[in-house]
Design a protein around this nucleic acid. Structure first.
Length: 930
DNA sequence: ATCCTCCCCTAC
DNA sequence: TAAGGTAGGGGAGGAT
């Protein structure tokens, strides 16, 4: 049936010519995939008649258990069936509360049975015995039975490596990160193991620890937990952790950040070989060879993929509730949808009225329209009926497509949603599940490429150009296989969009959803973009959309009639230029594969109710501790501390409409700049309290508090073994400080700008009759906007981190911008200004460094390769060809001597990059012998 | 001009 | 009841 969907959704994009052939082929591929992933040869019949369902994290992983089960005659269910044994290492409170515990069994039951070659009594492996209160503590057990447990997992991993090598490697990394993410809260001081020790064993222990701690907050007895009172307001000492445990937005944010870091880590530790590509390629080539076709189609253009799980929270939740599939479902804290009581003092009308007024004021000023013409749309506007007055104000985190069909949207209040759809059913949050599925998603993609820009836990951009060229696979086949693999592994559907840039890819995903794929080819862009709503453009939110609508524009096609200057006037220089590009389907912003954190913050705008100043100060201390703990986790110091306060507006009712919400507030931001960067908890606390006191606010009126630290510096970095960074730090190389040069991607609008300025250099860009502004070109004359350097390949890396920690910034002498080189094709990896490691070094030092690197006997790290490329390209720019020639030949000789494939690949890569630079600067290649 | 502070907006 | 966080980009306007 999905195939029919595809027919409808896919206009003529070049593939329809293949007609039924493509369908037959894709069906074949799907079949092959499931054979590859699932049906291994059956070795024994140990598990005859046994079916399992795996819940949560286990070691071995669900994937591995699946293979074991099928190999040994058992059945693995992706969704839980009534007769399944539930395999789990741990079940969170909420889960096992509602579950018959009779058949919840530890994964060792499977592995032990296999090693004994017979089905062992599952009762010896029950995760919980008798009642909840007598729950076995896994943590202790693991530590006690250390040896036997560890040897099992070890031997298992040895066996499984040959099945999914990449995956296992990645899973190990994933577990690292999970630990890192939750550990700080529970204040476990043990750190993730280094990569070169035996991974599965150490991780096992950490994982168990983590789960145990998550379960009860700080690893105390469960009875104790049950007895402790619920933290109602921020005056309660347990409030922060309880709030964060339940805050969806907090989890979304933290998961997002951790996956950005995950991609950083994967890239830094990868050898950039992707064996999984071969598997995929083989299974595709074995059916038909259409190399020529795909090559012809794609070799010239960049292919960006956007991938996104479909209503993520719902999909994850439904894995355990197949009975709810196909129904209108929402994930929310609320169960009944009814507010339990009406609190005295609640006045929704006044509160909502204030929100409306504010919006009106904003738009009134912006548009100059009379008030009654303005259409309002605020969040609380969803509730207008008397019926809703007592409805639940619990927010819907995610809803199924069946619910969306009734008009329900994410973020809507439960009461309002029930009005639209009375039979809406709710399912609880499953934050562990989201994490687990997200890791599987990321690690699946990472088997094929690491040219990934993480957007959030369930969404990313992937540059597939190199991947598709290398595999000789066309976009549609790749998408089909990939989506099938993800659904197979996670039990959740996803959608992918492809296009020539990130905007196109994203718009394609919108067309693909749900559970589909779409390739927005170049020839389709112009037609499709015309009808796209401005509010569907990324970066255009409610405010911008309303503003544009007030200017008379709802679709991209309509906005195309506005000039660049007009847009800039109305929306600001950057936003205007961006919209100018976007509404034409253009997007010059490259993907960023490596992210650098710029701020750390923690805020709570829920449950803030203080009776006196002491409670407020106490909370500020706790929140400072939270920020401090995060700074430690991220290993950063900060120079600027900002306190954000939400204070009840004079006119707002004291009792908020939403229980413990912040109501209608005024927001205050005050910052304090320190002379030196710090992560000292005392200093942070002191500054925060001092700022707060200065504001002279009645603690009773406070409704929200946040602390943010910016102007970050890295605390230090541990250079990885065998890397150039290590070598540098061992040799105590000191590099002098330089100034930064910012790099900017070149956009269509920018080219246009330049063109216009040539035509009429004295153009006055200002709109209306306000003061004249300088043209952007004139503005930029003082500092050249872009050097050749930034147009060439360069990446951030561990070396840079090290140097950054030494307060080294970029050394980049300005060279003439290569005007002829300015094109709309921007390299995918241009990044923020960052330190440049080798550039401050004497040339001979670099050769010494190269030699040490080559002779280290290790596999080359991509980050080091990137650094070398940076350095060599800089030599090209500096016209230092003689020494470049020497270094290139040196590199060729050495890599040849080593003779290993990975090093030869490095040489090829470096050569290619250097030659690119040569062509850009000199218009010809460097002559290198051989 | 450029930087800094205090916002606002957007995204998940 | 209910868990309205967090990071990044950008603009206005004042200080330098």
């Amino acid at each position: 049936m999905r195939r029919r969907g595809r027919d409808e959704k896919f206009p003529d994009n070049g593939f329809e010519a293949w007609g039924g052939y493509m369908h037959a082929k894709i069906a074949k591929l799907e079949e092959q995939f499931s054979a590859r992933a699932g049906r291994e040869d059956i070795i024994t019949n140990i598990f005859n008649g046994v079916s399992i369902y795996v819940n949560g994290f286990t070691i071995p992983s669900a994937d591995e258990l699946k293979i074991l089960m099928t190999k040994h005659g058992g059945i693995y269910h992706t969704y839980q069936r009534s007769n399944d044994y539930i395999i789990a290492s741990n079940l969170p409170d909420t889960k096992f509360k509602n579950m018959s515990l009779v058949k919840v069994v530890k994964p060792e039951w499977i592995t032990d049975s296999i090693s004994s070659n017979r089905l062992l009594d599952y009762r010896d492996y029950l995760l919980y015995k008798n009642s909840r209160t007598q729950r076995q503590l896994n943590f202790n057990k693991v530590l006690k039975n250390d040896d036997s447990f560890l040897s099992e997992t070890k031997s298992f991993n040895c066996e499984s490596v040959s099945l999914f090598p990449n995956e296992i490697q990645n899973t190990v990394l994933a577990e690292h990160n999970i630990d890192g993410m939750t550990m700080h809260k529970n204040e476990i001081e043990s750190k993730p193991i280094p990569n070169d020790s035996v991974p599965s064993t150490s991780n096992t222990i950490l994982l168990e620890k983590r789960e145990e701690n998550n379960f009860v907050g700080v690893g105390v007895d469960i009875n104790q937990y049950k007895q402790s009172t619920v933290a109602k307001t921020a005056a309660d000492p347990n409030f922060i952790s309880e709030f964060y445990n339940k805050s969806r937005l907090h989890h979304i944010s933290q998961l997002g950040a951790s996956f950005k870091q995950h991609v950083n880590d994967l890239r830094e530790n990868s050898n950039f070989l992707f064996p999984a590509r071969e598997d995929l390629k083989k299974s595709i080539l074995s059916t038909f060879d259409y190399n020529n076709f795909s090559q012809l189609k794609f070799e010239k253009n960049k292919v960006i993929m956007h991938i996104d799980m479909d209503c993520f929270f719902v999909s994850v939740g439904l894995r355990n509730r197949p009975d709810l599939r196909g129904k209108p479902i929402a994930v929310t804290h609320s169960k009944g949808g009814q507010a339990r009581t009406t609190r005295p003092g609640v006045d929704r009308n006044t509160e909502f009225g204030l929100y409306k007024q504010k919006q009106m004021k904003k738009l009134g000023i912006a548009t100059g329209k009379p008030e009654d013409e303005i259409v309002f749309e605020t969040r609380v506007d969803n509730i207008t009926d008397e019926d809703d007055k007592y409805g639940s104000m619990s927010e819907i985190a995610s809803c199924s497509y069946e619910a969306r069909a009734k008009g329900i949207k994410n973020g809507m209040f439960m009461g309002a949603a029930l009005r639209l759809c009375p039979d809406l059913q709710t399912i609880p949050y499953d934050f562990d599940g989201y994490k687990e599925v997200a890791y599987t998603l990321y690690n699946t993609i990472a088997q094929y490429t690491l040219d990934i820009e993480a957007v959030s836990c369930d969404e990313m951009y992937v540059d597939c150009t190199e991947l598709l060229a290398d595999m000789n696979v066309n976009v549609q086949s790749f998408a089909t296989m990939l989506r099938e693999e993800i659904k197979h592994k996670t039990g959740c559907p996803c959608s992918t969009g492809f296009g020539g840039n990130r905007l196109q890819a994203r718009l394609a995903t919108k067309k693909a959803k749900p559970d589909g794929q779409f390739f927005l080819t170049e020839d389709l862009v112009e037609d499709i973009i015309f009808e796209i709503k401005l509010s569907d453009l990324p970066g255009v939110g409610r405010q911008t959309a309303q503003k544009l609508e007030s200017l008379g524009h709802v679709t991209c096609g309509s906005l195309q009639t506005l000039t660049l200057a007009t847009l800039k006037c109305q929306l600001g220089i950057k936003t205007g230029a961006q919209l100018f590009d976007q509404c034409r389907g253009r997007d010059p912003t490259p993907l960023t594969f490596h992210t650098v954190r710029k701020s750390v913050s923690a805020e709570v705008n829920y449950g803030i109710r203080f009776e006196n100043e002491n409670q407020c100060i106490e909370f500020l201390k706790q929140l400072s501790a939270e920020v401090h703990s995060r700074m430690q986790q991220y290993k950063v110091l900060g120079k600027c501390i900002t306190l954000k306060l939400m204070v009840r507006d004079e006119e707002a009712p004291i009792e908020t409409a939403k229980f413990m919400g912040h109501g209608f507030c005024n927001v205050i931001n005050k910052s304090s700049s320190l002379s030196t960067a710090t992560n000292d908890i005392e200093i942070i606390t002191r500054e925060v309290i001092s700022i707060c006191k200065k504001q002279n606010i009645n603690p009773k009126e406070m409704r929200g508090i946040g602390i943010q630290v910016t102007k970050l510096e890295l605390l230090n970095s541990k250079p990885s073994k065998g890397s150039i960074s290590k070598f540098l730090s061992n040799n105590k190389v000191v590099v002098k400080k330089e100034t930064e040069v910012k790099s900017e991607p070149i956009s269509e609008s920018k080219i246009l700008e330049v063109a216009e300025s040539i035509k009429k250099p004295t153009t006055n860009e200002s709109c209306g009759s306000t003061s004249p502004k300088k043209s952007p070109v004139a503005k930029r004359r003082g500092r050249p906007p872009k050097s050749i350097k930034t147009q060439l390949s360069s990446k951030n890396n561990s070396m840079n981190k090290f140097l950054q920690s030494q307060n080294v910034t970029r050394d980049l002498p300005y060279k003439d911008p290569m005007k002829k080189n300015v094109s709309k094709e921007v390299p995918h990896n241009v990044e923020q200004p960052r330190p440049k490691g080798l550039l401050g070094l004497p040339w001979d030092k670099v050769r010494e460094l190269l030699r040490a690197w080559l002779e280290s006997g290790q596999s080359p790290l991509q980050c080091d390769v990137d650094m070398i490329v940076d350095y060599l390209q800089e030599m090209v720019v500096n016209k230092n060809t003689e020494k470049l020639f020497v270094l290139m030949n040196f590199l060729r000789r050495m890599t040849k001597e080593i003779g290993r494939n990975d090093w030869l690949k490095v040489y090829d890569h470096v050569t290619e990059q250097v030659q690119n630079a040569m062509v850009a600067v000199y218009g010809k290649r460097l002559f290198i012998s051989d």
